[in-house]
Amino acid sequence: MSRPEIEVRALHKSFGANEVLRGIDLEIGRGEVVCVIGPSGSGKSTLLRCVNLLEEPTKGQVFVGGTELTDPDVDIDAVRRRIGMVFQQFNLFPHLTVTENLTLPQRRVLRRDKAAAAKVAAENLARVGLSEKAAAYPSSLSGGQQQRVAIARALAMGPEVMLFDEPTSALDPELVGDVLAVMRMLADEGMTMMVVTHEMTFAREVADRVVFMDGGVIVEDGVPEQVIGNPRHDRTRHFLSRLLDPAMAEVEEGTSDQVGKAD
């Protein structure tokens, strides 16, 4: 088997005294779609942000496409061009139009000329189904449209890997589908994807593997049918039951300040 596209070895990350990641080992092969799930505070977003070094790991190594990002001498900007990132809050550039959001990074970072950048921008806007919004400003778009533009912006750089940090968590429920459809299209095209998400349906149907994290470690890692359908660990089962049917959750000791009052 060839080298994995993303490789994380013995990764630790602390914020001060707070140890968020406690030794993560993870490999993602070329063309593989991996969904990372877990309760809030489990470190899943931090792990994702360590993969393109938006967070500096405290210890351990990260490789993408065979290049070690954690090597202090590596040209991090060059490596990041190969890694697309999509944020929960979209982070479009509000002072630029949709097209300029796509062309400016190509021109400044990849040094493409105006015509080439415009062509790539138009192609990628068409892929996410937003050609008619080319001249609009981000503020005039819905959340779902903004997120699709953000995906197109990342794709315009021609990445080999795409990272998604809870891409649908800030969206109104009826807008989630459009974004997931674009992500499903990317998965079908063979893009290597690492997706932090709460969308279990997406994970079950699109992911090749699902990774469950809790307390800064990977608890369970396997195909969706197993991790979501038939989890082996109590913590996974517990998380999934709360997620799939929040109304059925019971008040637990220590999970809420109002435990005493609730009874």
């Binding site: 938006l54 890694i83 990132m85 944020f87 982070n91 550039f93 990074p105 970072v109 990342a154």
Partner: peptide, 8 residues
């Protein structure tokens, strides 16, 4: 963060 992740 968005700019850095695009390679700026």
């Amino acid at each position: 963060e968005a700019a850095r992740s695009l390679g700026f």
